[in-house]
């Protein structure tokens, strides 16, 4: 197990704190905190640079969990916004943000995407118990 000092010091320098890492093939998504505000951030592991995610982090939203597809094209995440907890899908090529329904209704907590971003697993609280839903995406 070999640390990657250049990448790790860049991750450390670029945020006050960072949590919930999820790896794609050459991508790292995590929740980074700066000046008391948390944002979902995607880093290209080859260049060690953050990748712009226009429209993903919206004012007044608090990220809870995030996952990137293996190919880096899709990010699934959970956010709280205006008192609601929502399961979201972001398509990088279109910069498109879509809310995914959780049915039967429940409160999503943690999400995982597969390699192509076509299947999603989400932990959901329903009537005081934790379920795991698997959702196929178009």
């Amino acid at each position: 197990m070999r640390p990657q000092p250049g990448l790790n010091s860049a991750l450390r320098r670029s945020a006050d704190s960072r949590r919930q890492p999820a790896l794609g093939q050459q991508w790292l998504v995590s929740i980074a905190s700066r000046n008391g505000r948390e944002r979902i951030e995607l880093v290209d592991l080859r260049t060690r640079q953050p990748v712009p995610l226009p429209g993903l982090n919206q004012a007044g939203s608090q990220p809870v969990s995030a996952s990137v597809s293996g190919n880096g094209k899709r990010i699934a995440f959970i956010r709280t916004r205006e008192g609601r907890t929502e399961l979201m899908l972001y398509r990088r090529d279109a910069g498109a943000l879509q809310r995914l329904p959780v049915e039967p209704s429940g409160v999503p907590r943690e999400v995982s995407l597969d390699g192509e971003g076509r299947r999603l697993a989400v932990q959901v609280s329903r009537e005081g118990r934790w379920d795991v839903d698997v959702i196929r995406l178009p």
Binding site: E110, D114, G115, E116, L120, V122, Q123, R129
Partner: peptide, 11 residues
């Protein structure tokens, strides 16, 4: 009471 799901890359 299942938590913390993780899919394999091939789903």
């Amino acid at each position: 009471q299942q938590q913390q799901p993780s899919l394999s890359g091939d789903g």
